[in-house]
């Protein structure tokens, strides 16, 4: 008896990994949970945000000099998303951007709340922290444009 030989199936591959942060990422996220943004000074003297145990540009260990940065910063590049995907940082249309926090030398990736007309390279933004913070990069819920 003939059947449809094209057997097709959906496969859902899902797992929640447990990621140990180590001391440096751990401190950055701990500060974030407290509503503070910190960078760490690299061996070459720049302030790296978010903080890492090393400078990804040269592999050298970062120092133990921590520096308060933000909460305001500047957009260095951006893109506007009209239809946010499920699980995006914001439900309403928003921008992804690289934001260089005041006091930092390196921009970081995050979401920026609209309105769209206010989003521009060079626009000034301010960190918006989540109401309920649990120690992850999403404790910084997004940035908003400073009018």
């Amino acid at each position: 008896m003939a059947r449809d030989a094209d057997f097709v199936a959906r496969f859902h591959l899902a797992y929640t990994y447990k990621r140990s942060t180590g001391p440096v990422i751990g401190r950055f996220l701990t500060s974030l949970r407290e509503g503070r943004l910190e960078g760490v000074r690299t061996a070459s003297g720049e302030v790296l945000v978010p903080a890492r145990a090393y400078d990804p540009r040269d592999g050298r260990a970062t120092t133990d000099a921590w520096v308060d940065v933000g909460p305001e910063g500047t957009i260095t590049t951006w893109t506007w998303i009209d239809a946010p995907a499920a699980g995006a940082p914001l439900d309403a249309p928003f921008a992804w951007a690289l934001v260089r926090l005041d006091g930092a030398d390196t921009p970081m990736l995050h979401a920026v709340r609209g309105p769209r007309a206010a989003i521009a390279t060079g626009a000034r933004v301010r960190a918006v922290f989540a109401d309920h913070r649990e120690g992850g990069i999403r404790d910084l819920s997004c940035f908003e444009v400073i009018p």
Binding site: R19, S20, T21, G22, P23, V24, I25, R52, A53, Y54
Partner: peptide, 13 residues
Amino acid sequence: AKREDVSMPELVR
């Protein structure tokens, strides 16, 4: 069994 004291980058470093 668990090197929970380090992140992945720190482990390889």
